[in-house]
Amino acid sequence: MEYQALKDYLMAKPETIMELPFAPDVPVFKVRGKMFALVGWKDGVMNMNLKCQPEQIDALIDIYPAITRGYHMNKRHWLTLYFDGSDAEREAFRLIDNSFELVVKGMNKKAQSELLAAN
């Protein structure tokens, strides 16, 4: 997957902003100040950290070698997807949607209804 297509999908989420708090080549995508995705590159391979349910992370790791526990993140609630051309890339948009929804569900009820209705 190309970075621009990934960025376009992330930025299409309601009220999403992109920040560069860590480094100029590590974009962080947030909704109402809460991170739901982080994109980076390691050894020339693009990767993305996403929030995910712990039981889903375990299953995804068993299926896809390109999915690991979150790199530099809480290993229980975050995963890293490496864009290495493998089958795991087909999960990217679904995992982005899931991460966005998990972050929104941690917000107050009013914010949840506004953001999930717009999603």
Score class of each variant (00 low, 15 high):
residue 1 M to N: 01
residue 2 E to S: 05
residue 2 E to T: 09
residue 3 Y to M: 03
residue 3 Y to D: 01
residue 3 Y to C: 00
residue 3 Y to E: 06
residue 5 A to T: 12
residue 5 A to S: 11
residue 8 D to Q: 13
residue 10 L to C: 08
residue 10 L to A: 01
residue 10 L to W: 11
residue 11 M to R: 03
residue 11 M to C: 02
residue 14 P to F: 07
residue 15 E to C: 01
residue 15 E to G: 00
residue 16 T to C: 06
residue 18 M to C: 13
residue 19 E to V: 14
residue 20 L to T: 09
residue 20 L to F: 15
residue 21 P to D: 10
residue 21 P to F: 07
residue 22 F to Q: 03
residue 22 F to A: 02
residue 23 A to I: 10
residue 23 A to S: 15
residue 25 D to P: 01
residue 25 D to C: 00
residue 26 V to C: 12
residue 27 P to H: 05
residue 28 V to Q: 08
residue 30 K to L: 12
residue 30 K to M: 04
residue 31 V to E: 06
residue 34 K to H: 13
residue 38 L to R: 10
residue 39 V to T: 12
residue 39 V to P: 02
residue 40 G to H: 13
residue 40 G to Y: 14
residue 43 D to P: 08
residue 43 D to L: 09
residue 45 V to E: 15
residue 45 V to M: 13
residue 46 M to R: 14
residue 48 M to N: 03
residue 49 N to A: 14
residue 49 N to T: 14
residue 51 K to E: 01
residue 52 C to W: 11
residue 53 Q to M: 11
residue 54 P to I: 12
residue 55 E to F: 15
residue 58 D to E: 14
residue 58 D to S: 11
residue 59 A to K: 15
residue 60 L to G: 02
residue 61 I to G: 01
residue 62 D to H: 12
residue 62 D to P: 00
residue 63 I to P: 00
residue 63 I to S: 07
residue 63 I to F: 02
residue 63 I to M: 12
residue 64 Y to P: 07
residue 66 A to K: 03
residue 67 I to C: 09
residue 67 I to A: 03
residue 67 I to H: 07
residue 68 T to V: 15
residue 68 T to S: 10
residue 68 T to C: 02
residue 68 T to I: 14
residue 68 T to P: 00
residue 69 R to C: 02
residue 72 H to F: 06
residue 74 N to D: 08
residue 74 N to T: 03
residue 75 K to Y: 05
residue 75 K to T: 02
residue 76 R to G: 01
residue 76 R to P: 02
residue 76 R to K: 15
residue 77 H to S: 05
residue 77 H to N: 13
residue 78 W to F: 07
residue 78 W to D: 01
residue 79 L to M: 15
residue 80 T to W: 09
residue 80 T to H: 05
residue 80 T to D: 01
residue 80 T to L: 09
residue 81 L to K: 01
residue 83 F to G: 00
residue 83 F to D: 03
residue 86 S to W: 09
residue 86 S to N: 06
residue 88 A to K: 06
residue 89 E to Q: 13
residue 89 E to C: 04
residue 90 R to Q: 13
residue 90 R to L: 10
residue 90 R to V: 04
residue 90 R to I: 10
residue 91 E to W: 05
residue 92 A to E: 03
residue 92 A to F: 14
residue 93 F to H: 10
residue 94 R to W: 03
residue 94 R to D: 14
residue 94 R to A: 14
residue 96 I to C: 03
residue 99 S to L: 02
residue 99 S to R: 08
residue 100 F to W: 10
residue 101 E to H: 04
residue 103 V to A: 07
residue 104 V to K: 08
residue 106 G to V: 10
residue 108 N to P: 01
residue 108 N to V: 07
residue 108 N to W: 06
residue 109 K to S: 08
residue 109 K to P: 04
residue 110 K to H: 08
residue 111 A to S: 12
residue 111 A to P: 00
residue 114 E to Y: 08
residue 115 L to T: 09
residue 116 L to N: 02
residue 117 A to N: 10
residue 119 N to F: 02
